[in-house]
Design a protein around this nucleic acid. Structure first.
Length: 491
RNA sequence: CGGGGUGUGGCGCAGUUGGCUUAGCGCACUUGCAUGGGGUGCAAGGGGUCGUCCGUUCGAGUCGGAUCACCCCGACCA
């Protein structure tokens, strides 16, 4: 058991914070609600970025960058959009400081008031559509398939590292299409890209589906999402893809001439995932010993730790380790040989455990004698001795196995925490005593959805794709329903 | 914005019916020796004026007031 940490059962949020801290991922900044992502945490984010970026490019997208500041007036163009974000925006009102006359320090120069305030982007639809307007004249200009890696600011009341911070990093894709069908197809395509990434790289199983009108993105006609289940039984929205219809095209007057020489409004999508994914990663796989990383996202996949008593042994091990490291690198495995003499081996074991390094190889004099190494896997916390002959191939296979095992473990956790409720009492009882996903009937109205949220604090996470049709009665109103939808309390 | 809580070396805390006074302890740090297959032991060191301001008092980390900051629980959200 690691020192200075809390168990999941004792206090889930404390446990979460301990992992973030002990794994050296991030810390609260002195700036309100903001987070400092530390080098190790950022290295994981870079793995996320590079894998996603490749997937975006493979689906025909290109990267671009748009301004951080958005003129206030842009927001008023799309009514529901501004309504969704107005309450959480940082606003720039002045552009200059000056020394206070009483010498007390620096003050905002009242003379330097902006005529039109600038909003620090909470999301970039408006500035991008204002730009797209100039890019699009003809059907030949379409589609536009841009992605932006950026930071955004949402002035949240309460923040938590990675899960909700005032400033966060993300990517936002913004596409423009000639037809509705094409835009819908894009929306779906990107949701599947997200699901593919989250399941295959992050080893987190997700439910793909459509948001109910209540939970829809401000300004979208449809919001598709992937929902994951955390170890405390709460749901986490891991990614969203929005079909924006022609809302933003109309708001920013973006029209194109089609083949028949007729003016039409452009169809739009937007989609994004954020550093929140790191939060999902932590809450899905970690245990009481710290972070557990899936090999595909681990900045270091294998760490080699020498155990020695004297200089002679140390050198013999270093030589062996260097050879092994080279072999592993040749297989595209990232490996670190930690020969730091100022830390003891036991200390290192704990260190890398807390940081979630998937595989640890310990080499001591005893191992050298027997031509073997001790291989420990982070996911199961088991160790075994492996002969140096063929060890690289063994490790490669082991990494795949760990990746797979983490996904299977998370999947079976989700399966055993997914329930059906047929009555209101059952529904509440599950939420209170067996937190998890709950499939239940809902009469399809917004009023009922809101009422359920108010009474139970659970929301409709999504209406899953390919949801089986099933006649039933709404758990709240008893009105007829044709399918169950996915409920949960959520982050 | 409502409810609760906390501010004492780098981190985590103890100390409060005001005076035993030189403000302690654990971790971390420095040095030395030993040790080395799961956060190693021993010894010696360096470092704080108790969030800030005002007040009560012969005397305040300790009492009162104000103020600032942060944390937790709600409402808002990726």
């Amino acid at each position: 058991m690691a020192k200075n940490s809390t168990t999941r059962e004792e206090n889930y949020s404390q446990w979460y914070n301990d992992i973030v801290k002990n794994a050296d991922l991030a810390e609260n900044s002195s700036v309100r609600g903001c987070m400092v992502i530390k080098p190790y945490g950022y290295a994981i984010w870079e793995k996320v970025q590079s894998a996603l970026d490749k997937m975006f490019k493979d689906t025909g997208h290109v990267n671009a960058y748009f301004p951080l500041f958005i003129p206030k007036s842009f927001f008023s163009r799309e009514a529901s959009h501004v309504e969704g974000f107005a309450k959480e925006c940082a606003v720039v009102t002045h552009y200059r400081l000056k020394n206070a006359e009483d010498g007390s320090g620096v003050v905002v120069d009242p003379e330097a008031k902006l005529e039109e305030e600038l909003i620090v982007r909470p999301t970039s639809e408006t500035i991008i559509w204002n730009t797209y307007k100039n890019w699009i004249q003809s059907y030949r200009d379409l589609p536009i398939l841009c992605n932006q890696w950026a930071n955004v600011v949402r002035w949240e009341m309460r923040t938590r590292l990675f899960l909700r911070t005032a400033e966060f990093l993300w990517q936002e894709g913004h596409t423009a299409h000639a037809t509705r069908e094409e835009a819908v197809e894009e929306t779906e395509r990107m949701l599947h890209v997200y699901a593919d990434f989250v399941e295959n790289f992050m080893a987190i199983p997700v439910v793909k589906g459509v948001k109910s009108p209540n939970e829809r993105f401000a300004g979208a006609l449809d919001t598709y999402c992937i929902e994951a289940l955390m170890q405390d039984g709460k749901a986490l929205q891991a990614g969203t893809s929005h079909f924006l219809g022609q809302n933003f095209a109309k708001a920013f007057d973006v029209k194109f001439l089609n083949k028949d020489n007729q003016l039409e409004y452009v169809w739009a999508t937007s989609w994004g995932v954020s550093t929140r994914l790191i939060g999902a990663l932590i809450m899905t796989h970690s245990d009481d010993n710290g972070l557990v990383l899936p090999p595909k996202l681990a900045p270091t996949q294998v760490v080699i730790i020498p155990i020695y008593k004297n200089e002679e042994q140390r050198q013999a091990i270093a030589e062996k380790a260097a050879g092994l490291a080279a072999e592993l690198k040749a297989l595209n495995i990232t490996v670190k040989f930690d020969d730091d003499d100022t830390k003891r081996s036991g200390w290192k074991f704990n260190e890398y455990e807390q940081k979630g390094v998937p595989v640890r190889i310990a080499i001591g004099p005893r191992d050298l004698e027997n031509n073997q190494a001790e291989v420990a896997r982070r996911d199961t916390l088991t160790k075994e001795s492996v002969s140096f002959d063929g060890i690289a191939a063994y490790i490669q296979k082991l990494l795949d196995e760990i990746q797979n095992n983490l996904f299977q473990k998370a999947l079976s956790f989700r399966d055993t925490h997914t329930y059906k409720a047929d009555t209101w009492e059952e529904f509440i009882d599950l939420l209170d005593n067996k937190p998890g996903f709950v499939y239940a009937h809902w009469d399809g109205t917004q009023e009922t959805e809101e009422k359920i949220k108010e009474l139970s604090k659970a929301t409709i996470r999504c209406i899953p794709f390919n949801n089986p049709k099933e006649e039933g009665k709404c758990i709240l109103t008893g009105k007829p329903s044709s399918q169950r939808v996915l409920f949960a309390r959520s982050y």
